[in-house]
Design a protein around this nucleic acid. Sequence first.
DNA 1: GTGAAAGCGCTAACAT
DNA 2: ATGTTAGCGCTTTCAC
Lengths: 370, 370
Amino acid sequence: MYDVIVSVHGSAHETLSLLLTLERIMGKGSKPTIYEVARRAGVSRQTVSRVINNRPDVATDTRQRVLQIIDEIEYRPSAVARSLSKQRTYNFGLVIAGLDYIGPSNTLSGIAKKSEELGYGLYLKELSSFSANNIFPLLDWFLTHQVDGIIWAAPEIGPNRDWLQDVTIDIPVPIIFLTTAKRDHISIVNIDNYFGGRLATEHLLSQGRRNIGHISGPLDWWESRQRMEGWQDALRAGGIEPEARMVASGDWLSKSGKIAFEQLRATFPEMDAVFSGNDQMALSILQTACEEKIDIPNELSVVGFDGIQETAFFSPPLTTVFQNQIELGCMAVQELARMVEERGTEPPREPVYITIKPELIIRRSSTPVG
Amino acid sequence: MYDVIVSVHGSAHETLSLLLTLERIMGKGSKPTIYEVARRAGVSRQTVSRVINNRPDVATDTRQRVLQIIDEIEYRPSAVARSLSKQRTYNFGLVIAGLDYIGPSNTLSGIAKKSEELGYGLYLKELSSFSANNIFPLLDWFLTHQVDGIIWAAPEIGPNRDWLQDVTIDIPVPIIFLTTAKRDHISIVNIDNYFGGRLATEHLLSQGRRNIGHISGPLDWWESRQRMEGWQDALRAGGIEPEARMVASGDWLSKSGKIAFEQLRATFPEMDAVFSGNDQMALSILQTACEEKIDIPNELSVVGFDGIQETAFFSPPLTTVFQNQIELGCMAVQELARMVEERGTEPPREPVYITIKPELIIRRSSTPVG
DNA sequence: GTGAAAGCGCTAACAT
DNA sequence: ATGTTAGCGCTTTCAC
């Protein structure tokens, strides 16, 4: 009896599975498997496998029949089983921080979009603090879940990249970092914050301003320091020596910008321009100015950083350095996908260091009519 | 020879696997499996399985030995294999939209945090537009990947929930919706926008204002309509009949707020207060007022909606209706986890409809000193 | 307390 | 063009 069935449907082993499968099918709710499709179509599982993977070597009518069954019983191939079998998940792991700021969620948007486009799923983990406490459980989780690659999109702050040295990158999957100082042997995608700082400052110089203050972000942020250095070097290139009293630090939020601005007015009274480390702190300068009847841009020019949409409608509209965070996210994913696809190539590819130039958007806050 | 090995390490079948495994181990890079651990520890795979699952029925010294090996060879259990075997992934699928706005990314933050806390991984998919185009491929992807549950965190706009009727919910996994009008048979978590609209308006009434205008969000957004209805009903309760000329619609962005405000000043010149559908549009009211020397709050009171952090540092500080989006995300995940854990309970649980009350934060923009 | 056998749903490699 | 066999790495009975 087995022999008969075998000759029609498959081996003894498959027939046995068939019987078991049938029992299972009885119970409600159990999702159909590839085997169920094969059984109904009267073909083997591999044939079904070929169909669902769009492989050419299947007879047209067989393919039709299989497809119809699939449709009929609403069969969906299990990505889990496929991952196990192929030893590849087509998933990326993403570590991000500071979703309560608008910048990171733009980056996220770019990452999500590009991953989708390239056919990768995306596991999201948010780092609750910016510090580096729970890095290892997190990495472990990703490895455990067999992601094909990791995107590290939390900013570099203080010592929160030290673990890189410890691990000396024996992480067995490709990993790409955003917003991280250049380091050997690791792949990085960055906005060129230094260049942005120079852009802003050179623009103010070109408008005839000579007393250009700076409100920086927190100085343990790598990005803040880069922007500040851009400001410093631009000043020097213009023949001006930057001094400590020309800088005040904030924490990115509007409130701190207000405080820093007050401070600068005290320590640097001749100030005729400010370069703010981000747009939100710049906003509070504009507000303070409005309250205290300081004429922007005639008395004081202001330039921000980030290029959030609102800046176009600040009053006056804010000149700002636009950093394309969506693009940043896209690039990161694109590069990671490349790394994944080119694994095992000989010789191994060099780590990449990609830098995206920000752009200056000139508006009224820095262009006195005079 | 087999017999000897068998008596030490396992069955003939396992010994065969062993040989194959050994070969594989030779090749660089192949990750150790549970079998490798078992072999080195001289126990069976099930024992190792017990150890990594923290099961009590393992002798202490056996456990120690196994743990040590695991540490030594840096073994990490494969979540993929486990998922296949347990028919459960401990992953959620999240659909979100509008990450370029700040609200959704707060919700996301809550969702990510709570998922982590409850031990679930999170697959992220961003809906590129707010419309309902590519819903089905998306759902399919999640089902294919065997998520334990789905969180739908894209807002309800126009007809983008129509598919719910089509599918009549034969989605085989629990699913929870955010920001969605009440419907039968589906689980929903919402901010009470209607209540928020009432809160804002009643506050203005209590301050003696009688001519309260409203700048709404886009009226195809369910949230916008709810807030507006709250405004309307509060006015009526105060003996005032709302009229069309008292409302102008924006698109959430500052610019549209400015335009809407200009319009209201024309159609509703006696206006002495405005309730804005969000904080960003309210910001542009404040800015316009500052430019045009309108005294806020004495001439005009302003109340916003959302409660973004910046509002505390607007000038003047903005009274606003705070919606806790992080909490919203947490609740959604918590509820989803419950649904997942209580599957198959008899009788099945009723769908939930949870509503979070927003809170009024009173600041200077609505509290004239008089 | 520990182990053998079977199975989760799919694919790769090798037939035919 | 289609089928067979042997995995992928883990868990779940059930037996001892």
